[in-house]
Write a protein that binds this DNA or RNA. Sequence first.
DNA 1: TTGTATTTGTTCGTATGTATC
DNA 2: GGATACATACGAACAAATACA
Lengths: 256, 256
Amino acid sequence: MSQLPRSPAKPRAFEAIVSHVETRVLSGELKVGDRLPGERELVTQFQVGRSTVREAMRVLESNGLIASRPGDPRGALVLSPSPAPLGKLITHLTHTSASSLVDLLIYRMTLESSANSLAAIRRSDADLVQLERTITLMGTARPQGQAAFSRADLDFHEVVAKASGHTLLHISAAAVRQSIEQLIARTIEESSDDEALMARTIEHHQKVFNAIRDRDAHLAEHLARSSLFEYYAHLVPADQRDALAALASFGSPDSV
Amino acid sequence: MSQLPRSPAKPRAFEAIVSHVETRVLSGELKVGDRLPGERELVTQFQVGRSTVREAMRVLESNGLIASRPGDPRGALVLSPSPAPLGKLITHLTHTSASSLVDLLIYRMTLESSANSLAAIRRSDADLVQLERTITLMGTARPQGQAAFSRADLDFHEVVAKASGHTLLHISAAAVRQSIEQLIARTIEESSDDEALMARTIEHHQKVFNAIRDRDAHLAEHLARSSLFEYYAHLVPADQRDALAALASFGSPDSV
DNA sequence: TTGTATTTGTTCGTATGTATC
DNA sequence: GGATACATACGAACAAATACA
């Protein structure tokens, strides 16, 4: 009996080291740039075998807390907080549990509309300069075809997300954009360069820029939704389009 | 010289196994519930030592991809996506001050408002039954104090997210909720049981339920924002509250 | 710059407790 | 209950890489 995994589950030896280090990093006892004791010293400190110590090191490393390299007598290095492991995890999540294109688009609409809103509130003047540059880039990329234009387009969204000053939104939006691009890469390759759509997209982005410049958070948020809808809606089956349309029309001046 | 870590950095033996498994999960070759080969078989497959295999297992385990337990002759189990690893990373990032409480609340508002909107569109009748039950539970938990009420409250949001039928939203919203609860655990413990707030919260949830029942996506989305704002806004410093307020007021009937 | 000591990366053998059949 | 195969954990050994005198 008892086919289910036990609730408490036997605590494993390496976990003691992991949570010990995590706690000390969280409490500030271990600062960025500090060194952990060497593996052999951890063996005596925790009364475990060296393999166990190494398992703990790999987990801490995978979570972005430390880095160790061979031959360094000073021990593993405590790293500064980085969104990199988070980005990897989110990328993995979007790739695995992305049931459909429409769900990915919904997710992107969700994240980027908030990023736009935040950017309108938190943007610096330097952000505006960078944004204007990416819009210019879209213009020059236009005659180079769909692929180049798409790259410039993604750049714009990336810069906006960065201007939001929200690390989590920034990282996760980037992951979702990438997943979407990979998913529709084949679908879109044969789509003839749609000059009219490109022009409309640039216009949209110009409007977003204006809204962010004028610190109009509501307008910026709504524009993210409507422009994503216009750009991508034709790729999703008509019978799944209602959820996307509902999000896109939220906050619209002419709705309600 | 060369104190900095090399750019290419020598690939380590266990990483081959990690990325191999990751790739197979991503490609769908390994489905949830499938089993990995035993450790000894992986040793021969990858021509590495057993400790190396175990290090790879710990990393995969820490990222929530697999679970293994001693004595199981079937090998490590491939897990379904879970919010746990994501929540842990987010919690760690916020604690190390890469991100603040207000950013977490913004993130939650972003995700849950979309989840509400989707739930209004995709909900089944069974979802409604479950939602009603969690609201009833909040009523019975009310006299048991803040902690019990908070748990029931979180349950409601969890059920709504599930009803959205959007795995990504569901998982990431759960992770963010978890992080927020951990972050404000101490702040809120001394907050006297606010009977009035509890009553208002239940009312809010009833309104959300009605909106989802009536398939009013816009109303459901707006309610998620306004109720989160009312519930949590007092915890964020006044000078950071504008971004949260901007999101909360978006789509409001009386704004614009 | 060279050499040396020490560290991490990796392998291997062994013992032990446990889940499955 | 017993046999089997598994994961957990330890520790010794060697190679490669690094820091430091």
